[in-house]
Design a protein around this nucleic acid. Structure first.
Lengths: 316, 316
DNA sequence: ATCAATATTTCTCATTTTGAGAACAAACGT
DNA sequence: ACGTTTGTTCTCAAAATGAGAAATATTGAT
């Protein structure tokens, strides 16, 4: 069946971490002969040498070190699994996911008001790409997430909350851009794969038969915008992000075709599983009780506008 | 030793995924009695009921579903472990870690120059707290990382690259702050545990016998600064971050005592394991060949200043 | 209501795996 | 050369595992 086993991983990791069989055995409350035997069995099953036998010690091979790195992750996840089961499902913290752009431009005002209304709620705001956030939501790592269209989230409830205009930004070394070919050879600066905006940029370039020269992947809008300002390449960002960054004054903004520019941000969550913290947030965002995706998008168009105005007013 | 076992997890997951013991047994090429037995043993070891026995089927409990979610992650990671071992270790991308603050304020200029010098290098810049970044570096998830003092990274090479001044920021609703008590009751806005700046804030408050009213954990400086500007709470950030954010105009800046304010950012990596990409970056940062930490801090003080001036000039 | 099919569980037993301990071999330090 | 340290091989008892037969309970069809 499986070639690896958590006890094996623990043993290999301990041999490397503690510098030998005897010390590992001591720490694990085993006898050295068992440690040796288990290591050899694992090596045989996997068909790789995890250690080089040098003198009277074991020296980890490249593959031994690789396995130790994975062993750490597996053992940590195993501990987490047992802890989660013991604790049951307790949410002491409201874990909320958001796009980096939304976190910087739209959420501060919302969360400030939320904190005033619910000072006892401890919030942990994590950022990521749309794909990654939906994954974490599915796995119950986070309770809700602000994500960008387009997304596919079957079984999740969604509420459109913000409208964004996406724009192409470049350094001043680039002239007027109406089509991809106007860019010439260029470097893409974007979030990792899984980011809706990146996908749009790649689609747009693809429509014009262009391929980017190279890609720099950053996980921070200040870094992306500042690099574009420095003339390193181009990026697609929501216009709302530019308002908060000084480096934006040093970039050139190019409108995109309407079908690419228009973008809506949605809040996603598991239907029927809302904590009071999430309900409070949805109330703040002007939510009507959501049943499914289609009707709520029509019902909530007016309140979305009401949410946007005070945020803009705050920044002006 | 361990209560969970990968085979157990596979069995539980299959029972839930395939809707019963018999079907799971068939898929896993086992007999039903063994499936039943293994499930019961696991329930006994964990002390939780993973299934309710209803009619002639098994209905997963909340905890059974929770375990199945974790089982998926564990089994996926186990498969990935075996695949990685079979494939060996390939690094096609220069994976670089950085503090969020460094990424937004210091790195853009550096990376712009780097990209001009090495356009073929594909960079993935990931951000995190000092603690998390050191962990990822130790596990070879990333090749190098920009981290903040104080840090403990035995066995890693380090090079001081940037000097930062940390400041306390608050909304305008807070008067002059010279000591923690001047703040009164307040909310801390910070990165997750593992962030050196957060630790400093907590130490400083602790020196004054203060405890924060609550904590909001964000993973984005634009969000942190904007929330502070909205009057939600206080934070400690590097002054360099404020230069790039418009929301910084709406915060009040309070100098900190010198022993808290002075902070140095270091580049860390595994000695003797530098790719050409990392060597190129170190050259750009004005590195002399580093042997260990103590001597290089004295030797590199003049070049660090040289790096800082062009970055500031770019933003002015 | 009766019977057959379905699903799970209990029990038995042979096989495999595991871990401890003794003995051994090689390397290292004094 | 000798003593100590480290890892390995071998033996054996205990524990764990998986298959299969038998038992039990539920469901669906007639």
């Amino acid at each position: 069946m499986r070639n690896i086993d958590l006890d094996d991983l623990e043993i290999v990791h301990a041999v490397i971490a503690h510098g030998g069989v005897a010390r590992a055995a001591h720490v694990l409350h085993r006898v050295p002969s068992n440690v040796t035997t288990r290591v050899k069995q694992l090596e045989a099953r996997l068909g790789v040498a995890l250690f080089a036998r040098r003198g009277r010690g074991l020296v980890p091979t490249e593959q031994g070190r690789l396995l130790a790195a994975y062993a750490e992750r597996m053992l940590r996840l195993a501990d987490e699994t047992e802890s989660a089961l013991r604790a049951g499902r307790l949410l002491g913290t409201f874990r909320l996911g958001s796009l980096e752009s939304t976190a910087g431009s739209r959420l501060p005002g919302v969360l400030a008001r939320y904190n005033q209304a619910h000072p006892a709620v401890r919030i942990e705001l994590v950022t990521g790409t749309t794909g990654a956030l939906i994954g974490r939501l599915s796995r119950h790592d986070i309770e809700a997430a602000f994500v960008s269209e387009p997304f596919n989230a079957p079984g999740l409830a969604a509420q459109a909350v913000f409208e964004e205009e996406l724009v192409l930004i470049s350094g001043h070394n680039v002239g007027v851009v109406r089509r991809p070919a106007d860019l010439g050879r260029t470097t893409l600066i974007a979030f990792a794969n899984g980011c809706s905006y990146r996908r749009r940029l790649e689609e747009w370039l693809g429509e014009g038969g262009m391929l980017a020269d190279g890609v720099l992947e950053f996980a921070s809008y200040p870094a992306i915008v500042a690099c574009v300002a420095a003339g390193t390449g181009v990026a697609i960002v929501p216009r709302s992000v530019l308002l908060g960054l000084r480096a934006a004054e040093a970039v050139r903004v190019h409108p995109l075709p309407a079908h690419l520019a228009r973008n809506r941000t949605h809040l996603l969550w598991h239907p029927g599983q809302e904590s009071l913290a999430l309900q409070g947030l949805r109330t703040l965002l002007g939510a009507a009780p959501a049943i499914d995706r289609a009707p709520q998008q029509d019902e909530e168009r007016p309140p979305v506008d009401a949410v946007r105005r005070p945020v803009s007013g705050q920044r002006a």
